[in-house]
Amino acid sequence: MSDATISALPGAESHHGIVTIREMGLQGMVSLRADLAGAARAVKQVTGAAMPGLRGVTKGRGCQVAWMSPDEVLILCDHAAADKLVFDLGEALTGQHHLVVNVSDARAMFSLAGPVGALRDVLSKVTPADISAIAPGEMRRTRLQQVAAAIWFETQTEARVICFRSVGRYVFDLLTVSAGKGGAVGYH
């Protein structure tokens, strides 16, 4: 059934603008709500990652753990690994009040790649978050114009964006328009 499993905008790509936009395909995402301090050991045991601090992102075995709120983290992993991760975390957190759920298909992920300044200029067109204050290793929940989103920098020249699956097309179109040729700002 693998070809029956598709992401929000498979293969979508825009490379004519000042940065390149690409849909990242199937991405595993697991949402964990718990008392974060109390769940740290279980998370470390199952993912290999330390519990992140405020807006932090930590690396584990084939996955990353991102802080979402005082009682929520998001685990990014391979799409195929998500269900097992849910099961393993549930087992490890037995006895502790928690909620762990697979949300891989509820999201869409995009990559924006380009020169350092242009990349930040394009993002600044659509989010009120202070883009220059976001360093790699930080995940910033914010909005992209009219929808909720989270942003982080994989490297200085590549950013990632996640949004709800249902608005994947809106986000892709929004980013494409914002990266349109002629739209260089020269601010960052």
């Binding site: 929000a8 114009q145 009219q146 994947g168 097309r169 809106y170 179109d173 929004l174 328009v177 914002s178």
Partner: peptide, 16 residues
């Protein structure tokens, strides 16, 4: 209005 016109006037939602 900014960029919000045409297809991106509103964040229309699509099922799979």
């Amino acid at each position: 209005a900014g960029e919000g016109r045409g297809a991106i006037f509103q964040p229309l939602r699509r099922t799979s």
